[in-house]
Simulated assay, not measured.
Amino acid sequence: MTALLVSLLAVTLAGRLVWIEEYFRRYRSHYGDLKGSLRKTRVQVENPSVDAAKAKEKQALYVQSARRQFEMCLLGGTLGVTAWSALYAAKSSSGFQISGLSLRLLFVGVFALITGPVLAKAEALFFSYMVRESAGYVGFSAVVFSLTSIAWDLTGVRWGVVAAVFAALVAVSDLKQDVKLVDFLKSGIPRMPRAQGCRCNCCPH
């Protein structure tokens, strides 16, 4: 079970890193450098052909989405910290059945959910969106894998296998999403104008 869950978490993380690497690689191929990749807004990457008015409207929606994403991750992280703290405090008691793997996976999930949004606070920027999105996917997946491990700890093979199948389905779903995101970059970045400068008056200079 340890090898399976660690592998699933590694695959989930790797999928997100491939997405981020794909962005930088294709941006450099399109523009010739990486200087502007950290300053591109989400609307410039995902909606490069819209007019200025529509771009502002889209960017406002993306900012609202970023705030909801921030709140959701912090809420999940806060609940995870509470659960982890309670389990960690109880681990020295007699009859405690939760394994160290379960606690470590839960800690990884909590860490990702809290640090990702905190580090990537720029709501409008595409790179910040990538960091928040990746932290959310990796964090919540790690929590699911932790619950899978806990199910194995408490119920044994019978329900542990069922939980493991569910965890594998979660990882497959994450990978499918990663493929869609990478495929979008393959077609989306070439549509971005090569001219420098903001088209929607909403990105930093």
Rank of each mutant, 00 (worst) to 15 (best):
S7Y: 04
L8Y: 10
L8W: 07
A10C: 14
A10N: 11
V11H: 02
V11P: 06
V11N: 01
L13W: 15
A14E: 03
G15H: 05
G15Y: 07
R16G: 12
L17A: 05
L17D: 06
W19E: 13
W19V: 14
W19I: 13
I20K: 02
E21A: 15
E21D: 12
Y23F: 15
R26W: 00
Y27I: 01
S29R: 15
H30C: 07
H30N: 02
Y31T: 02
Y31H: 12
Y31A: 03
D33I: 03
D33N: 13
L34D: 14
L34M: 12
K35M: 13
G36A: 13
G36W: 06
S37W: 03
S37D: 11
L38H: 06
R39Y: 11
R39H: 10
R42A: 01
Q44K: 00
E46Y: 04
N47S: 13
N47Y: 15
S49A: 15
S49I: 07
S49T: 10
V50T: 04
V50M: 05
A52V: 08
A52I: 01
A53R: 10
K54H: 11
K54A: 15
A55P: 03
A55L: 03
A55C: 07
K56W: 07
K56G: 12
E57G: 03
E57Q: 10
K58Y: 14
K58P: 01
K58A: 11
Q59E: 04
A60E: 08
A60I: 06
L61H: 10
Y62E: 01
Y62H: 08
Y62M: 08
V63Y: 00
Q64R: 14
S65L: 12
A66M: 08
R67K: 11
R68L: 14
E71A: 01
M72S: 10
M72Q: 10
L74V: 14
L75A: 13
G76C: 04
V81K: 07
V81E: 09
V81T: 12
T82W: 13
A83L: 15
